[in-house]
Design a protein around this nucleic acid. Structure first.
Length: 341
DNA sequence: ACGAATGATTTTGT
DNA sequence: ACAAAATCATTCGT
């Protein structure tokens, strides 16, 4: 299995050129199907193919078993269809060949039929059928890719965070309202407390900042809850649980860039805002530079096949066919999705 | 069914 | 590299 994955990757990497011989394309399809476990009837769980890395990057730590089995069920459906179709084709090919050779044999009574001619005919038939097979393989690949994108694209599969997570995040956000930019360490802690990944924390803060700014009114209530103050006097409030690695020096009036970023207009000038409008020196973002722990390789999904098949002539937004899954992840996480149980 | 909320991704600017 | 902004795709409350 691993070998097939590798060879598939090698082929796909090497086969970037435009001129794809049909042969090479077929090999690629075969390799992919093999790697996906479609070609082989069944594969039982190999050893534990543990993903290297501690933090399940970009993945959901809690709930993937259900979706996983769902995924496998669908994959096996695809596999079933693929094999039955393949068998049908093979049988049809065989029958047709027989039929033709019989015909030729009959004809040989009326006219000389060279073995070469027969051979040629057989060759033609086979090439026709293999073209059909190729199509089958291609659509199977397509189906698998669609399936994968459905199940693995985090965006499609997003879940709302747990109460715990949002609580922790909101707590931090509102208690650092003047500078809601958690340092790397703080993010890690938040991630740990909320049971989510660091990049999810980053995403959350990115969304929160922008949405808060955009629509202050809507968040007054929430702010009041998390700061324990009335909505009108929300300022810098320290919350007991989560101030271990506080970035900005709270007492020094240095306000962060958050409220000051050019937001055009004064439509959100509230008391809180006024509170922030203090002379602000440069950004105090040194901490974030310190957190140089290599982790969280980020957002690339562990998809092994990237578009060797469907060269996405990306013009505008590519809406329809194979969802835009650009990825060049190494074979690293294959086992994750592919070969367990 | 529909719109708001929300998490993730993409684009853009620095 | 990082953040803002825009956008996408799903989930949730009605």
């Amino acid at each position: 299995m691993i070998c097939s994955c590798l060879s598939y990757l090698v082929v796909s990497i090497c086969g970037i050129q435009e001129e794809d011989t049909p042969d090479a394309q077929l090999t690629r399809l075969d390799n992919m199907l093999l790697a996906e476990g479609v070609s082989r009837p069944e594969k039982r769980g190999r050893g534990p193919v543990v993903v290297a890395g501690t933090a399940t990057p970009g993945g959901c730590p809690n709930d993937n078993s259900i979706e996983h089995s769902d995924y496998r069920a669908k994959l096996s459906q695809i596999r079933q269809i693929y094999h039955s179709e393949l068998e049908k084709y093979e049988q049809a090919c065989h029958e047709f060949t027989m039929h033709v050779t019989n015909l030729l044999r009959e004809q040989s009574r009326m006219r000389p039929v060279s073995p070469k001619e027969i051979e040629h005919m057989v060759g033609v038939i086979h090439s026709k059928f293999s073209a059909i097979q190729m199509q089958l393989k291609q659509s199977t690949c397509e189906a698998v890719m669609t399936l994968r994108s459905r199940f693995l694209d985090a965006r499609r599969k997003r879940r709302n965070f747990s109460k715990q997570a949002t609580e922790v995040l909101n707590e931090y956000f509102y208690s650092h309202l003047s500078n809601p930019y958690p340092s790397e360490e703080a993010k890690e802690e938040l991630a740990r407390k909320g049971g989510i990944t660091v990049s999810q924390v980053s995403n959350w803060f990115g969304n929160k900042r922008i949405r808060y700014k955009k629509n202050l009114g809507k968040f007054q209530e929430e702010a009041a809850i998390y700061t324990g103050k009335s909505a009108t006097d929300i300022t810098e409030v320290r919350v007991p649980g989560s101030h271990t690695s506080c970035p900005s020096t709270p007492s020094s009036g240095s306000s962060g860039p958050f409220p000051l970023t050019s937001v055009g207009g004064s439509f959100f000038l509230t008391l809180q805002m006024l509170a922030y409008l203090q002379p602000s020196p440069g950004r105090t973002n040194l901490q974030s530079q310190l957190g140089k722990l290599v982790h969280d390789t980020g957002k690339s999904l562990p998809l092994m096949f990237s578009l060797c098949l469907f060269r996405p002539v990306v013009v505008g937004r590519g809406p329809p066919l194979p969802p835009p899954l650009l990825t060049t992840s190494p074979a690293g996480d294959l086992g994750n999705v592919n070969s367990d149980l």
